[in-house]
Computed example of a mutant assay.
Amino acid sequence: MTTETTAPTNDAVLVAGAGGVVGRSVVEHFARTGVTTRGISRRAPQGVSGWTHLPVDLLDADAAVEGLRAASDTTRLAFAAYIEKADLAEQIGPNVALLEHTLDALDRLGAPLRHVTLYQGMKYYGAHLGRFTTPAKEDDPRLLVPNFYYDQEDLLRERAAQRGFALTVFRPEAVMGYAQGTPMNLLMAIGTYVAMTRELGLPLRFPGQRETYDRILYQMTDAELLARATDWAGSAPTAAGEAFNITNGDVVRWSHLWKRLADHFGLELGEPQTLPLATVMPPREDLWNRMVERHGLVPTPYTELVDWRFGDMILGSTWDNVSNVIKLRQAGFGACHDSADRLVELLDDLGRRRILPAAPGVEVQPV
């Protein structure tokens, strides 16, 4: 089995979607290793140093060429850019355009591109549609429904064959990490819900379905682990041309995870009570503003904090969401996390940085 490697310092890494949970973590990872790192996003992630921010409009082919002139030495592209659309078919056009314009701009600029990492997710297997075959495997057949993952991957493989660069596709689930202004984020949904429960002095109740709480198995993918896998994939021969499921390596049951959270934050664990978060939580903006003031938190606008519809989708799912990660292990990437431990670590980090109120005993950074 091969071991993790680090990108050569003569690489130049470009991260599309640097403002999101995945992109921010990838930028942090490569910048920390001393590799020339640039990121494309509408706004620059705060608190990340050692990289160059490029505010490029990737939906405009000509603007992409002009905006990426400063990245004409790019050897590796990590593509995490994404545009949300409610309709599945409507997602295809803009998301394929983002990738196509990025690849074509780098080609027109003569960039010595040698590897591209593309990020997908469990929607590849139909996790958003209902019960699907689990554990999902990379060679499971595609579905009939529209899915921009399929179109992006087909485009990437076509361009790779034409232009001679390698590619790797990762399929994580519930990527856990923080990025400012990225409300489709399970870490922030859980953390904010727990923090508000604690602020009101209430028992911690699971807000999804009772069946989900007791029975359903779920997986998570740490954003930092995904960044390390991205680094590995760029130089591992076993990763070239392959698609990999990637998770922390374990499965969680919500009942066990909720008890862990209650214990960590000093809360009474209550019985589950199904709550439509998208209805119940948006009117709590005044509560959030009071918490920001009382705890000296970073003043994040409430509308940018959490997409509660996303929380409902995850916590209300009544089917297992599990993928097989053996292919990745056999290819040589064996890093893993205990998901409950890691969730607590991430929430404590948010507490230290005053993004959310800290758990008891966690020392916060000075203002």
Score class of each variant (00 low, 15 high):
Thr3Lys: 13
Asp11Phe: 04
Val13Thr: 10
Val22Ile: 15
Gly23Arg: 04
Arg24Gly: 12
Arg24Phe: 03
Val26Ser: 02
Val27Thr: 04
Val35Ala: 09
Thr36Asp: 12
Thr36Phe: 01
Gly39Ile: 04
Ala44Ser: 14
Pro45Met: 08
Gln46Tyr: 00
Val48Gly: 05
Ser49His: 10
Trp51Pro: 08
Pro55Val: 10
Pro55Ala: 08
Val56Gly: 05
Asp57Ile: 04
Leu59Gln: 14
Ala61Gln: 09
Asp62Ala: 15
Asp73Gly: 12
Thr74Ala: 11
Thr75Tyr: 05
Arg76Gln: 13
Arg76Val: 14
Glu84His: 15
Ala86Trp: 02
Glu90Ala: 15
Gln91Trp: 01
Gln91Asp: 00
Gly93Ala: 15
Pro94Leu: 03
Ala97Phe: 01
Ala97Gly: 02
His101Glu: 05
Thr102Lys: 08
Thr102Tyr: 03
Leu103Val: 08
Asp107Ala: 15
Leu109Ala: 07
Pro112Lys: 10
Thr117His: 06
Tyr124Phe: 12
Gly126Leu: 02
His128Gly: 02
His128Ala: 12
Gly130Ser: 08
Thr134Phe: 09
Glu138Ala: 07
Asp140Asn: 13
Pro141Cys: 06
Arg142Gly: 14
Arg142Asn: 07
Val145His: 12
Phe148Met: 12
Asp151Gly: 00
Glu153Val: 06
Glu153Asp: 13
Glu153Tyr: 01
Glu153Thr: 11
Asp154Gln: 12
Gly164Cys: 06
Gly164Phe: 05
Gly164Lys: 08
Thr168Ser: 14
Thr168His: 06
Val169His: 01
Val169Trp: 03
Val169Ser: 11
Phe170His: 03
Arg171Gly: 02
Val175Gly: 11
Met176Thr: 14
Tyr178His: 15
Ala179Trp: 09
Thr182Gly: 01
Asn185Leu: 06
Ala189Pro: 00
Tyr193Trp: 14
Met196His: 01
Thr197Asp: 03
Leu200Pro: 00
Pro203Asp: 07
Arg205Ile: 00
Phe206Tyr: 15
Gln209Glu: 13
Thr212Val: 03
Leu217Trp: 11
Leu217Tyr: 13
Tyr218Val: 06
Asp222Gly: 13
Thr230Gln: 05
Asp231Pro: 10
Trp232Lys: 04
Pro237Cys: 10
Ala239Lys: 06
Ala240Ile: 01
Gly241Asn: 06
Glu242Tyr: 01
Ala243Leu: 08
Trp254Tyr: 15
Leu261Tyr: 07
His264Leu: 05
Phe265Ile: 01
Leu269Phe: 08
Leu269Gly: 11
Glu271Asn: 13
Arg284Leu: 15
Asp286Thr: 11
Leu287Val: 11
Trp288Arg: 00
Asn289Cys: 00
Arg290Leu: 10
Gly296Val: 05
Gly296Asp: 09
Val298Ala: 11
Pro299Cys: 04
Pro301Thr: 02
Val306Tyr: 02
Val306Ser: 02
Arg309Met: 10
Arg309Ile: 03
Arg309Ser: 14
Phe310Gly: 04
Gly311Tyr: 07
Asp312Phe: 07
Asp312Pro: 03
Ile314Ser: 06
Leu315His: 11
Gly316Pro: 05
Thr318His: 00
Asp320Asn: 15
Val322His: 09
Val322Ile: 14
Ser323Arg: 02
Val325Gln: 08
Leu328Thr: 08
Gln330Asn: 12
Ala340Arg: 11
Ala340His: 08
Arg342Trp: 02
Leu347Pro: 02
Arg354Phe: 04
Gly361Glu: 12
Val362Tyr: 06
Val362His: 04
Val364Gln: 15
